[in-house]
Design a protein around this nucleic acid. Sequence first.
DNA 1: CCTCGGTATAAGCTAAATCTATAGGGTATC
DNA 2: GATACCCTATAGATTTAGCTTATACCGAGG
Lengths: 289, 289
Amino acid sequence: MRIRQLECFRTLMIHGTMTRAAELLSISQPAISSTIANLEHETGLKLFVRKGGRLQPTPEARLFFVEAERALEAVEKTNRVAKEIRTGKRGHLAIAAYASISINLLPRVMAGFAKERPGLELKIITRNSQSVRELMNTQQFDLAIAELPLDYPTSSMEVISYECQCMVPLGHPLAQLEVITPSDLDGVPFVSLFKGDPIYQQLAMAFSAHGSAWNVVAETEFFSTACELVYAGMGVGIVDPVVSRPFTKNLVLKPFSPAIRYEIALLLPTQEEPSQLAREFAHFLKQHL
Amino acid sequence: MRIRQLECFRTLMIHGTMTRAAELLSISQPAISSTIANLEHETGLKLFVRKGGRLQPTPEARLFFVEAERALEAVEKTNRVAKEIRTGKRGHLAIAAYASISINLLPRVMAGFAKERPGLELKIITRNSQSVRELMNTQQFDLAIAELPLDYPTSSMEVISYECQCMVPLGHPLAQLEVITPSDLDGVPFVSLFKGDPIYQQLAMAFSAHGSAWNVVAETEFFSTACELVYAGMGVGIVDPVVSRPFTKNLVLKPFSPAIRYEIALLLPTQEEPSQLAREFAHFLKQHL
DNA sequence: CCTCGGTATAAGCTAAATCTATAGGGTATC
DNA sequence: GATACCCTATAGATTTAGCTTATACCGAGG
């Protein structure tokens, strides 16, 4: 039994004559004739009786028609699904990320990505960066985003490196400067990440190298909390340019020297081949980072 | 998309290697290789990655697999259904018949016919013979059984003619005779069909030709009612040998002279080709008449 | 009687699916 | 590491489904 036979049969059943079916399928009439003859032979069913030079479907044909339509529908659905998978409109995308990015960035980016892909199932799991890294090993996710450094690196990871920027409230005197240095921030109230964070270490070194006083008035877990605090007038801060982007309407971002590097990594599954969808999303995500 | 491609894909997904899939499908390994390559090309999906000389299904393959299995199941069901239709295990058989045969004969015969054909749907409609004939014109039935004569005959009808037999209670003096004539029944209490029935006319003529007295003590609509009355001792009767067969344990049937003919007809649809199943049933039925 | 609409048959072509034979890449084992 | 083994990919030949065009056939209706 071949799909083409069922297609010919369906068209013939619906339109009554072989000539018409041939037109609709854009093939010659003899092609229909022989295909139907094959189908009758292979199924062992007499599907049509030749009556007055015309065809008349037998009761067997009517019974068979029900099943043939069902089968064709299933095959056609398979074709549709193949296309949906190809264009990323079907599938699931489970992404693991550390908190600040999963709260501040991912929802926007994923919504944009899913907009053109109805039927796509999305999942975001928020863990700390090291847990994210470990989850990827168990193949539970299609993509992960973790902050660097990690305890042990992975081959299939793509590092994205930022220079953090200094964030000051609108109208603050420092907002006039082109580049801000630790000297400019000598004694200025400062909102920082927690002590254990790599950013904290880098800042501490930068200030001590300049001999400037680093006046930390608040420590937060996430950059976004820091942004909120700066916006609320607690002081200035150093943040990565991605997470802070939504705040640019209310705050001013300035380059900071020396460069404070903030590095994150996109992790793809190692054991298993990453899905096309995961690769597409990784590409889409990089455009927004 | 061809069915064979899906079969190869399914087998490969389930069993992991092309070599194993080829064995199970009884084809060579290169055949699988190229068929899968074609499927990948036609669907535009990368279904497997070659990793360490082995194949590893991609996430796309897993998604596609779900649909492929569904489509294959539908196609395989179509094959099964074709076989069921061919062997008469699927289909429906609507039979219209007049009352006495639909009560006394059809249930037994149809049960025997359906016994070897699970999945067959049966329907019996009981009408008087003329209605039966008219229903057939509207193509609502696959087969009909009507008594003759009909107001207007049909080309596709097969006449079955019986000689009615004389039915007498066990131990009745007439049970000794080999052949019973109207003279033997002169004045004997008699159970007859109604006056309008062709049998009634024939009997009336037979008795008058012999100059015998026809002593009708009961008139019934059906042969089976007549049988019951004879069994109850009302008298003797003339019945067709088919309907009366179940009573032979309790009554004696004897040939009657002159022959009283009882004719019924099997009617097949005229407009539409009768189904193979209807033809099979007609054949089966004739063996039991 | 002949045309018209429809179906079947014949002969030849193309492409898919198959075969055999063989090359090549990984892993494991000695 | 050399080698054996397992697996996959490629090449060339063969078969067949499905297609083509050309043509015969068949019943209905002017």
